[in-house]
């Protein structure tokens, strides 16, 4: 029950059969307004994960374990010229704050931590635990 106002329409204008196209421009892979990628579940969160790029080793455990496809990945080349993923951030529109990413993060000081929603990310990074 959460159709944004701008997507509401009337019976004479809806797609017969309730068929939804994933892409607005399939060639360019531009997702349609019907794609849930463009939907926001941010308000489901109580706490949010904050990502600390400085500590990340790009193991990608968070990427593979995230149920909500919210880790933003950049494709880079490693020293041997092989492509590899670099985590560059979190899509906060899609993150529900489950904290699985924090649990699976293996770095000695976690590179993902949960913070209250109202804490600014820069502030959170300042509060990050230091090495003993």
């Amino acid at each position: 029950m959460a159709t944004p106002k701008e997507m509401m329409t009337t019976w004479d204008k809806i797609q017969p059969g309730a068929v939804l196209p994933s892409f607005e421009d399939p060639e360019k892979k531009i997702r349609s307004k019907f794609n849930s990628y463009n939907y926001k579940v941010a308000d489901w969160r109580v706490e949010k994960p904050v990502f600390n790029r400085d500590l990340c080793i790009d193991c990608d455990f968070c990427w593979v374990s995230c149920p909500d496809s919210c880790f933003i990945v950049e494709e880079v080349e490693n020293k041997r010229g092989k492509k590899q993923a670099k985590i560059v951030g979190i899509n906060y529109n899609l993150c529900k704050g489950c904290a699985v990413c924090v649990e699976v993060c293996p770095t000695p000081i976690k590179s993902l931590l949960m913070f209250p929603e109202f804490v600014d990310n820069d502030e959170a990074l300042k509060q990050w635990p230091k090495k003993d």
Binding site: C59, W63, A85
Partner: peptide, 8 residues
């Protein structure tokens, strides 16, 4: 292969 690759 490895996860770094799969994550692409």
């Amino acid at each position: 292969g490895n996860l770094k690759e799969f994550a692409c």
